[in-house]
Nucleic acid binder design. Structure first.
Lengths: 234, 234
DNA sequence: CGACGTGTTGAAGGAGCTCAATCTAAGTGG
DNA sequence: CCACTTAGATTGAGCTCCTTCAACACGTCG
């Protein structure tokens, strides 16, 4: 909050960044949901990632200079817009923060890789179940929801655009998941009735999210050793 | 070369990193080709990215602490292995290098995003044509090849694993591309007979690669301004 | 109340898959 | 230098998962 920033509330469907934009500010999602997407030549849309409160949605664009994809809100959202230069200065002044932000973008990249595998090599049912697991676990880990109830902001068409399917097929697969009592849905929420089976159905393994876990303690130690080295240098 | 490192020559098919490994060193590809991949529950493999001489193939893993995917050589390669801590120290001492490496991983992430769109929303023919364009352009830009002849280290099965297709279907699509005189292939090379048409066939737009271009001068200026800010802080 | 966004359903078709056989070229050992 | 092996490329036939197109249902909101 000490950084210069501007708070803003956006309606669902607003564009935060458009492909090709020169990125002069960086957007942090304070509440609500947003997603990144690209539009291919045929006009079809591919959703690249989904973002929840707390996510930095376009640090990538800020650092690369111009946006290579769109960022759009999925629900009404509250965002903080931070000038690009403020982020750069912050990173220059506090190497440990730079490191933390770097790691944040690396986790983001890890999620992208999992999505490549998800879309490239899994069945429609697996892809959709996997998406449910990911979003639920991330919300839970961010302290936004509690097992087994989660916010589900996506339309079936958006699920299709995220998984490389059509909305019609998504509808049929969802019926299957409901019939098998893995999930139950309302307008804008999901209940994961059976976590174990849903994970199994989605071939889901949380490790790619790099969330804190029993192994967290060791990673923490690593980071500390890095700060130490940094301190040595000055 | 001033960093501590160990040079090594690896046969085709060697694993550089395995999923789950604790990453204590970072691998730079000096020559040859390598690829990242994941294996999903069904046993199918998805290739996540392809790497050429000069690429840093597992900076991500080094910084995240443990590998979330495999890295394997595609041809005989020469690599330099650098201790993880040496990279961290280097970053702590020279913020501008840290920034450059960060940007390198961001470009990597941008390529992953394009792959998501490629696999999720393009036809088999588009996906494969797109892959040809990407690899050719990256080789050219790295000064490894000259238009219109490129090294092509991939088997048809690997092309399938990269594009989410089967090798049988890749074979048929390749026949189509050859018949349309977009490419011609030998054992381990491609000639792109018609760049314009291949780009068109692959719905390819180079911007996601963030290569130097007419707009490069301006980006350079941005980086310099960042260094200035960094200098100010000390 | 009508319009619109979203979810649901049916029927038909096709892009890409599976399985299995065959072909080719480049080793490899004797 | 040749028989043998093997990895990869090629081909055919049948099938299926998912798409396409089109209609309809339902709730919300101005």
């Amino acid at each position: 909050m000490a950084l210069p920033h501007r708070l803003s509330v956006l309606d669902a469907g607003s564009y935060i960044v458009r492909e090709g934009d020169r990125a002069d500010r960086c957007c942090v999602l304070l509440g609500g949901f947003a997603y990144r997407h690209k539009v291919v030549g045929s006009g079809a849309r591919q959703i690249l990632s989904i973002h929840i409160g707390g996510d930095i949605v376009d640090l990538q664009n800020s650092l690369l200079g111009h946006a290579d994809h769109n960022v759009q809100t999925m629900t009404r959202t509250e965002v903080a817009l931070i000038p690009r230069q403020a982020i750069l200065d912050l990173c220059a002044r506090y190497p440990a923060i730079a490191h933390a932000l770097w790691v944040d973008t690396l986790v983001d990249a890890s999620i992208s890789r999992e999505w490549i595998a998800n879309i490239g090599r899994r069945t429609a049912r697996q892809r959709i179940a996997h998406l449910f697991c990911e979003l639920a676990l991330r919300q839970e880990s961010a302290g936004l929801c509690e097992r087994p109830h989660y916010t589900w902001p996506m339309t079936q068409e958006q699920v299709g655009d995220a998984t490389g399917l059509t909305s019609v097929h998504v509808n049929r697969v969802l019926q299957g998941l409901r019939a098998d009592r893995l999930i139950s849905t309302t307008k804008s929420s999901v209940t994961i009735t059976n976590w174990d089976d849903l994970q199994e159905a989605g071939d889901f393994n949380r490790s790619y999210l790099h969330l804190p876990s029993p192994r967290g303690a060791r990673e923490m130690a690593d980071h500390r050793s890095w700060e130490f080295s940094a301190a040595k240098s000055y």
